[in-house]
């Protein structure tokens, strides 16, 4: 078989196969101007969503700034000491009481800050509690149903 003969056979076969595809066999095709509208790409369909979302976020931030009147401080304030007493702390009547965590000096010097704290009130070294309830020192007395009635203990043990 010569090369020209093979090329002629190839050309004839391709032409015969292509002529089998007629206009009637094609399904209905929409022109590109219509098809581009009916099947938009995902990006073209949703590109506008970030714009109102960004506007909403910006509006919320501006509103919050307007209501508070000051920008948020970059460093958070120190947390106040925990309000619940630690069960492992043993309070002796003869030993002065101190809070388990010492607050910041600036917070302790501010009288309004100390009075507004919801935690345990600070006790100065001179203050000695006259009475201490036994229920506060018992670690196992966490549940209120098993809590014994408070008994008064004298501040100074009898010699």
């Amino acid at each position: 078989m010569t090369g020209n003969g093979l090329e002629e056979r190839l050309r004839d076969a391709l032409t015969a196969r292509a002529e089998q595809i007629t206009q009637e066999r094609l399904r209905f095709g929409e022109p590109p101007t219509v098809a581009a509208l009916t099947s938009p790409s995902r990006w073209r369909r949703w590109w506008w969503v970030p714009l109102p979302a960004g506007l909403a976020v910006a509006g919320a931030v501006l509103g919050a700034l307007t209501l508070t009147g000051q920008p948020p401080s970059p460093d958070p304030k120190p947390l106040p000491p925990a309000s619940s007493a630690e069960p492992s702390t043993v309070i002796s009547p003869s030993v002065p009481l101190f809070p388990p965590s010492t607050p910041a000096p600036s917070a302790s010097t501010n009288p309004s800050a100390t009075t507004s704290k919801p935690g345990r009130p600070e006790l100065s070294p001179d203050d000695t509690p006259p009475t201490v309830t036994a229920g506060e020192h018992d670690p196992g007395a966490a549940t209120p149903t098993t809590k014994p009635p408070a008994t008064t203990i004298p501040a100074t043990p009898p010699s």
């Binding site: 196969r17 292509a18 206009q23 066999r25 095709g29 590109p32 098809a35």
Partner: peptide
């Protein structure tokens, strides 16, 4: 039509060829 014929000769499948041509025009 001629583009669909070209695609048919390449992929040998009419429905795939029509999809290809539609995508190219779009």
């Amino acid at each position: 039509l001629s583009m669909v014929r070209l695609a048919v000769l390449m992929v040998d499948d009419l429905s795939t060829a029509e999809d290809i041509v539609q995508d190219v025009f779009t």
